[in-house]
């Protein structure tokens, strides 16, 4: 029983990271109805930016804030420069551009920072809490997840810009008719996604170590979480991310062992897509063929 509880709690902690990645995916999905395959590499690249700042002597939270801001700007730039030209292209073209972006970010990171792994600091003190069930870092990650979710909720619910972004995602034509610059709302969505992804990267790097391929598996679980919770619904995506984290831990401990983690994610993704494409809390998102 104790072991089980331990698995659940630490699953919730990793799930928190998946939840943040899922949130980032939702940002772009809501705005453009696209799934950003390069989300993981964007987060990885942001984490390297944070590493550079810390390496240059910036205090952790200063580097954290700087990285989030810089990632936000980079996300907007990517939308404007890379994604905008294929805005109305067929899905295949858009997916190919995403993959191109993924590959470029991965290789540029490898080029600049090499492929050797680096350690990345945690802002939280070492040691464990709750009678050893959780490390302080894991607890901190959960707090950060909830913080990000709360901030996003406040932003979308109570600010005019947040309302405009929701409107632009829902009905671009009507949005333009009331004077909302829809193109910029999409770019903002990318900026937010990049900033949120950066948080995920900085939270996971102390656990998995920093290297250009660190996000691949995490992105996959982020996908699974977002799909499970409903990829158009931020709260659902967070719930999905947490659930997937727990599922991963339990299946690792009691079913298939940790060596098949990614296969579990594959099965989850295909399963959700086939059985309940709108996720548990989402509106219908897949047009059946």
């Amino acid at each position: 029983m104790e072991a089980f509880l331990h698995q659940v709690l630490s699953g919730l902690a990793t799930g928190g990271i998946y939840a943040i990645v899922a949130l980032a995916l939702v940002m772009i999905y809501q705005a453009t109805h696209l799934v950003n395959f390069a989300q993981g590499e964007m987060a990885m690249f942001s984490t390297y930016l944070a590493w550079t700042m810390i390496d240059a002597g910036l205090p952790y939270w200063g580097a954290f804030a700087g990285t989030v801001a810089l990632s936000f700007a980079l996300g907007i730039a990517i939308e404007r420069i890379v994604i905008r030209p294929v805005g109305n292209a067929p899905v295949l073209a858009v997916v190919i551009v995403f993959i191109g972006l993924l590959v470029i970010l991965n290789s540029v990171a490898g080029w600049i920072y090499t492929y050797t792994i680096k350690s990345f600091p945690s802002p939280f003190p070492g040691g464990s809490v709750l009678g050893g069930y959780l490390s302080r870092h894991e607890l901190g990650v959960m707090g950060v997840t909830l913080g990000v979710l709360l901030l996003l909720f406040l932003f979308f619910r109570f600010t005019p810009l947040g309302l405009a972004m929701r409107a632009a995602a829902q009905n671009p034509v009507s949005s333009r008719l009331v004077g909302i610059r829809v193109g910029w709302m999409l770019a903002l969505g990318w900026g937010l996604a990049a900033a949120i992804g950066a948080v995920a990267g900085m939270m996971v790097a102390p656990i998995v170590f920093l290297d250009p391929n660190m996000m691949a598996g995490i992105l996959l679980y982020g996908f699974a979480g977002a799909l499970l919770g409903g990829i158009d619904n931020p709260a659902g995506a967070v719930a999905g991310g947490l659930a997937v984290g727990v599922l991963e831990n339990l299946s690792g401990a009691y079913l298939v062992g940790t060596e098949l983690k990614l296969t579990v994610a594959l099965v989850l993704i295909v399963g959700v897509l086939v059985v309940r494409p709108s996720g548990l809390f989402g509106r219908v998102l897949v047009n059946r063929v």
């Binding site: 696209l34 799934v35 395959f37 899905v91 295949l92 997916v95 996959l220 996908f223 699974a224 799909l227 990614l262 994610a265 594959l266 993704i269 295909v270 897509l273 086939v274 494409p277 897949v286 047009n287 059946r288 063929v289």
Partner: peptide
């Protein structure tokens, strides 16, 4: 079969 465009891409990406 039941997945269109983006979602098939996602499933195969996972594969």
């Amino acid at each position: 079969l039941r997945l269109e465009g983006l979602y098939l891409a996602l499933a195969t990406f996972a594969l």
